[in-house]
Design a protein around this nucleic acid. Structure first.
Length: 416
DNA sequence: TAGCATT
């Protein structure tokens, strides 16, 4: 098993004749390896000259990085080996902290002194109002603090400040936009489009919205939990539609009667869970912070019938033997950089706002039963898929950003 | 030099 805070390393400039078994000895010197994968072309099997490497221990990764990165050149290569955290392990802007509740007279130097013990400071700027008084500040450090809460957060109250020091990750561009839209929507009183569109479910949808707003507030802290991130994504969608005035379209799953390809439209099996007209179940999807155990499929079909405990209908049993996890071309998404703890239910939840989710599957390592942090989501139409890409590609969850793309077509560049 | 539906 690997540490919870293990780092996935990207290894570049590897000679193409070295396979995993050849590379292992080189890297094992720094600790036990959890996973080492040489990247290969999916179709030709050609070695791409790079690999992903995860050690069981975070410390091993740090040691390997400092010992190897740019330090030696493998035979036949003309540039030194690259060993550094993979892009999925978080990016530059994640290093910027917001510091609030500074004393009005505190200078950049004061702040630098305060934060120096935690790492190298790249940049420190204090935002000042027209009167020159501090309005909080931004601080960039060469390394995000471990864990969720910076040790200085709440640790002290600066002279003249109304409450204790605030230290958290600075908003990303997306979060800033979201926050602004929120404020705007609040002022205009059009907070929730679903209460307008789906009057019958007003109370229900409002409850969800409130719950998600609460979750999102939690997400604004220094630690993003996955479900809060989902809520934030959904809120973002809603805020976006509010502002643009497009109240209905993208939130409405395309139809309540569509069927997956290859399935006759005639008898749609009834399912146990009640279905709302808008494709949402009338039960809150995330009560007690748990993902919905019964994701909603408005076509009336569970993509993975084996998971349903209520199989009795022979027709449903017939479906159970079928694999209909892929929608038509242009409807299937490949999602990478999922949080480790995401399962099919969370993936479904996250993509429900964009349309009919035909299937959502997180790829699991069959030996360890652990998520490989990627998966597939299929919609019943390309528009939903595009909307999902638009909203979710690059979406930040914790330290990572989702990669959301169309799945490569199955027979791409297969000659025959 | 960047992972795409498994038993």
């Amino acid at each position: 098993m690997k540490d919870h805070d293990a780092i996935k390393l990207f290894v570049g400039q590897i000679p193409r004749n070295l396979e995993e078994s050849d590379l292992k000895p080189l890297f094992e010197e720094f600790g036990r390896i959890y996973e080492l994968t040489v990247l290969k072309d999916r179709f030709t099997g050609m070695h791409k000259g790079c690999a992903f490497l995860t050690y069981c221990a975070r410390d091993s990764a740090l040691k390997a990085q400092s010992a190897l990165h740019e330090q030696k050149t493998l035979p036949g290569m003309n540039r030194p080996i690259q060993v550094k955290p993979a892009d999925s392990e978080g990016r530059g802007e994640d290093r910027k902290l917001f510091v609030g509740m500074l004393g009005k007279q505190q200078s950049e130097d004061d702040v630098r002194r305060l934060f120096e013990p935690f790492g190298q400071i790249e940049e420190c700027t204090i935002l000042r109002g027209p009167d020159g008084a501090s309005k909080g500040g931004f601080w960039g450090a060469g390394g995000a603090p471990h864990g969720c809460r910076h040790p200085l957060h709440g640790s002290q109250t600066m002279p003249g400040a109304s409450s204790s020091l605030v230290v958290k990750f600075a908003d990303t561009d997306k979060e800033r936009t979201l926050r602004r839209m929120h404020q705007m929507a609040g002022q205009l009183g059009i907070f929730n489009p679903m209460t307008i569109q789906f009057g019958a479910y007003g109370a229900y949808t409002q409850a969800i919205m409130q719950q998600q707003a609460a979750l999102m507030a939690a997400a604004q802290g220094t630690c993003l939990n996955p479900m809060a991130a989902i809520a934030a994504a959904q809120m973002q969608q809603m805020a976006a539609f509010n502002v643009s005035g497009l109240v209905a379209a993208p939130l409405t799953p395309s139809s309540g009667t569509s069927t997956p390809p290859g399935i006759s439209t005639a008898p749609v099996p009834s399912i146990a869970a009640p279905i709302g007209v808008n494709g949402f179940s009338p039960l809150p999807p995330q009560s007690n912070g748990q993902p919905a155990s019964e994701p909603i499929y408005t076509n009336g079909i569970h993509p993975y019938p084996a998971q349903s405990p209520t199989v009795a209908d022979p027709l449903q049993q017939a479906y159970a033997g079928m694999q209909h996890y892929a929608g038509p071309e242009g409807c299937n998404l490949f999602i990478y950089h999922l949080p480790q703890e995401f399962g099919d239910a969370e993936l479904t939840q996250m993509f429900l706002p964009f349309g009919n989710v035909i299937s959502a599957k997180v790829f699991v390592d069959r030996a360890t039963n652990q998520s490989k942090c990627f998966g597939f989501v299929s919609f019943d139409n390309p528009t939903s898929a595009q909307a999902a890409i638009q909203a979710m590609n690059g979406f930040q969850i914790g330290m990572k950003r989702l990669k959301v793309q169309l799945k490569r077509p199955k027979d791409a560049n297969r000659p025959y």
